[in-house]
């Protein structure tokens, strides 16, 4: 009786383990390949960017038109106002300087306004448009020198389009060769407009300049 039961267990248990193992393997493959994300990369993404030059020249480019432009790919990340680190990520996008060129270019006496769908905007100096930002080491959070840095209108992060909550379809990103961080307010989400304007000077010269 005892032997019979043992034999039965011996026969059933290996089969059960094999099935369980197979299920684990299938689950691992599914988790690794993330088939639910495939739709995101294949789906049609809509969104326009309006470019306005210093002489009011205007162009509107679709998501596909932006993707058809020459791209730059680099590494970078940001940290929030309370110090939460995001990245570094591998990011792909179009250089802001290239986009400005499409509407007459940007010079040292200009600033560039970047506006978002939600009413947020940021202004960048000429030096920043050229990639000159203070950059931080992700490990120490100290300011460190950087190599090549580029400000991008980004549309891909780690090989995928941005998720809506991360700025889809377009987000600004500062990336380069060194996997460094910048302050988070520069990574503007949901960008819809990039406008080159001459830098404003103080209206009232009677004040005490500082």
């Amino acid at each position: 009786m005892q032997t019979e039961r043992s034999n039965k267990i011996r026969r059933v248990v290996p089969s059960f383990i094999i099935i369980f193992g197979l299920l684990l393997i299938i689950a691992s493959v599914v988790v690794y390949t993330q088939p639910w994300d495939k739709g995101a990369s294949e789906e049609v993404i809509e969104g326009n960017i309006t470019l306005i030059g210093v002489n009011y020249e205007q162009k509107v480019l679709s998501y596909d038109e932006i993707k058809a432009l020459p791209y730059y790919e680099g590494d970078g990340g940001f940290f929030t106002t309370v110090g939460v680190i995001n990245g570094p990520f591998r990011v792909r996008g179009v250089l802001i300087t290239d986009l400005c060129e499409l509407v007459g270019g940007v010079t040292p006496v200009d600033v560039v306004f970047v506006s978002a769908e939600d009413g947020y905007s940021m202004v960048f100096s000429y030096e920043q448009i050229m990639g000159e930002f203070d950059t931080y080491d992700p490990e120490t959070m100290r300011i460190v020198p950087h190599g090549e840095q580029k400000l991008l209108l980004a549309y891909e992060i780690d090989g995928k389009p941005f998720r809506k909550e991360d700025g889809r379809p377009f987000r600004l990103a500062l990336v380069g060769t060194d996997r460094l961080l910048v302050e988070g307010h520069n990574w503007v989400k949901w960008v819809v407009k990039i406008e080159v304007m001459p830098i404003k000077t103080a209206d009232n010269t009677a004040g005490t300049g500082a």
Partner: peptide, 26 residues
């Protein structure tokens, strides 16, 4: 605060002060 360019300006009218900060601050 040093001299920023473009400058931060301070204007006073009847004891009321307005500090104007430019678009970019350097």
């Amino acid at each position: 605060l040093g001299k920023s360019s473009p400058p931060i300006t301070v204007d006073e009218i009847d004891g009321t002060y307005t500090i104007t900060v430019p678009e970019v601050l350097k």
